[in-house]
């Protein structure tokens, strides 16, 4: 632990500011709370929002897991885990079931989360309407009016043009029937895990200076139409390492001829299954 910095890097005033914002975020599910995002020693776009949320949460009794693309060993996940063990001295783990706080980029673990766990998402763009309306002053008003026609039409246009909704990740959701919310760039495969989750889910967008939350046991609907219900990704293949047919798969190119194989994106889930396999 580096002694010249406060526990978990941030000063106490900053943590209090974050904590107040987080409590409001939980009280207004899916609503983006502006907060005084600080400059962190990691670049914007690399998880500064998630890191600030995690820093506001962490205490000496916590066990932290950090994943990127579902994996504990990707370089950015390693770096963030290294950061917290350096500035907070907290215990870290790669096991989903052992963690009290899980910071993630782009995935929700396959292993079901529990009520005593908190999932922290890194969010690059918190505003689900941003690609349709770049002006913040206007998107704020659309949220105030709960006017999500722009998004419905975008999805409808996809169907008219392609026969499908052409959004495969960061698929917009409606939280508690009120706020249109970005689930962060998780594949839509993970969207059902947001609905009525036993674990509290917190979202931090550092560069855009917004926090939001999905409380546990909250209704989270992925937008869809009656004749085009929401569907998640499916594979004909199963994981080449653990045989799972239920997990999100990464496609790996294994030779110069372009031969592909499919493996679990969640490395802990895959590793646990392999360990349990009869050898």
């Amino acid at each position: 632990m580096t002694p010249s910095y406060n526990f978990a890097f941030l000063d106490e005033n900053t943590k209090r500011m974050l904590r107040r914002a987080l409590l409001k975020a939980v009280a207004i599910p899916g609503y983006q709370v502006p907060f005084g995002s600080r400059e962190m020693p990691l670049p914007y776009g690399w998880g500064t929002g998630g890191i600030q949320v995690t820093a506001a949460l962490l205490g000496p009794d916590d066990v932290l897991k950090v994943i990127d693309q579902g994996a504990d060993d990707t370089t950015n996940a390693v770096n963030i885990r290294r950061f917290f063990s350096r500035v907070a001295g907290v215990a870290t783990t790669e096991r989903t079931s052992e963690a009290s706080v899980i910071q993630t980029r782009h995935r929700i673990p396959e292993t079901s989360l529990r009520e005593d766990q908190i999932l922290v998402f890194q969010v690059p763009e918190p505003e689900p309407l941003r690609t349709l309306e770049p002006r913040e002053a206007e998107t704020r008003t659309l949220h105030a009016l709960a006017d999500y026609g722009l998004m419905h039409v975008k999805l409808y246009e996809d169907i008219a043009q392609y026969g499908h909704i052409a959004t495969s990740y960061d698929y917009p959701v409606l939280v508690d029937g009120r706020f249109l919310t970005s689930p962060s760039p998780i594949p839509k495969f993970d969207n059902p895990k947001l609905d009525h989750s036993p674990a509290l889910m917190l979202f931090g967008a550092g560069r855009e200076k917004r926090l939001y939350a999905i409380p546990p046991y909250t209704k989270v609907e992925s937008l869809a139409f009656d004749d085009h219900p929401f569907e998640i990704q499916q594979w004909e293949e199963t994981c080449a390492l653990c045989g799972s047919g239920k997990s999100y798969l990464d496609e790996v190119v294994v030779d110069d001829q372009g031969t592909r194989m499919f493996v679990c994106s969640d490395t802990d889930y895959c590793g646990q299954r392999q360990a349990e396999m009869p050898s």
């Binding site: 943590k15 939980v26 205490g59 009520e115 409380p215 546990p216």
Partner: peptide, 19 residues
């Protein structure tokens, strides 16, 4: 202990607000 006492109370407040 201002740092850790606030942290532990905050986690309970957060769970209280979430539940």
């Amino acid at each position: 202990d201002p740092v850790f006492d606030s942290q532990r109370n905050f986690r309970e407040l957060l769970q209280a607000m979430a539940r």
